[in-house]
């Protein structure tokens, strides 16, 4: 690295602090908002930190509204959706895990053939995936609603899983295909000479080598699925089948719900993906880069 003047270094530190402040601003808001009471938020509208921090917001959500704690003593109204936090969390987990599994399964089969078998139609499939990645959910929503309604798949997790798998598959293929292309074909050819079938060579030789790419792709798909709002919002209106983003969205415009409770549920909903990102940062960085460029 080039040596820098002390002044230059100071400027870099300042720039970094500005960026870090910008990144952490919403994080500070959600954390500080979630540990205070409605009363303290209303009592002093200029005070930054709560006079007495409390965990009651989390207690009331995690006890399904039964342990109201001190700050909710006089409050009679709690939205039902807050009480179904566990169900929503479980629904989100079931949907995201299933979508990740199915997308990796179907996506790796497809990406491998796209990378290895150069037919006119596999090239066409790749191009179709590139375009499909751009299709906004809002365009699919209306027909998906009508289609799922006629199949009786409204208010079910399977409907959401099918819809999200189809929606995310093109992106997964775009992340995986370039990686499969970098694995030398010699190994599979050797295995095939030894009597392995094409599918056998793919499962025994190629997939183990592709573990990093599968991890990168899997974690990205899991995160997108965990965050997905529109598909479950429109397909599942019954509280039993809501996912976390839908529960959060249902609080928007509820005049009786105060920011402290909203921030607490937001914090609980974002924690899993924040932990994933912190642990698997390297894979996400590789996957994001692979999905957008290069061959």
């Amino acid at each position: 690295m080039r040596t820098r003047s002390p002044g230059g270094r100071l400027l870099l530190h300042i720039a970094n602090l500005v960026v870090i402040f910008f990144i952490l601003l919403p994080v500070a808001a959600v954390v500080i908002g979630s540990i205070q009471s409605e009363k303290s938020l209303q009592a002093d509208t200029r005070r930054l930190l709560p006079p007495e921090p409390t965990l009651d917001n989390f207690t009331v959500i995690l006890s399904k509204g039964e342990h109201k704690g001190r700050i909710f003593e006089q409050i009679t109204y709690l939205p039902d959706n807050i009480k179904s936090f566990y169900a929503a969390f479980a629904n989100s987990a079931i949907v995201s895990i299933s979508v990740t599994f199915l997308t990796l399964l179907f996506g790796s089969l497809s990406a491998y053939t796209i990378a290895r078998q150069r037919f006119r139609w596999t090239l066409f499939l790749l191009q179709a995936n590139i375009v499909a990645r751009f299709v906004p959910v809002i365009v699919l929503m209306i027909p998906l609603y009508v289609v799922m309604r006629s199949f009786g798949q409204l208010n079910s997790l399977s409907g959401v899983i099918i819809a999200e798998t189809g929606f995310l598959l093109p992106y997964a293929i775009l992340i995986l295909a370039p990686y499969f292309d970098t694995i030398p074909a010699d190994l599979e050819e050797a295995a095939r000479i030894d009597g392995c079938t094409r599918l056998g060579a793919f499962i025994k030789i190629v997939l183990p080598l592709a573990t990093p790419a599968l991890a990168a792709c899997g974690v990205i798909i899991f995160i997108i699925s965990w965050h997905e709002l529109l598909i479950p919002l429109i397909l599942n209106a019954r509280p039993d089948f809501m996912t976390l983003p839908v529960v959060i969205a249902s609080l928007v415009g509820d005049v009786h719900v105060f920011f402290n409770l909203m921030m607490a549920i937001c914090l609980l909903a974002l924690a899993p993906t924040v932990i994933l990102v912190a642990l698997l940062q390297k894979y996400i960085v590789e996957g994001l880069a692979a999905g957008a460029v290069k061959g």
């Binding site: 919403p26 995160i223 965050h227 709002l229 959060i248 937001c266 974002l270 993906t273 994933l276 990102v277």
Partner: peptide, 8 residues
């Protein structure tokens, strides 16, 4: 920020 659900 990539880890934060858009609605949250």
């Amino acid at each position: 920020p990539y880890a934060i659900p858009p609605i949250a």
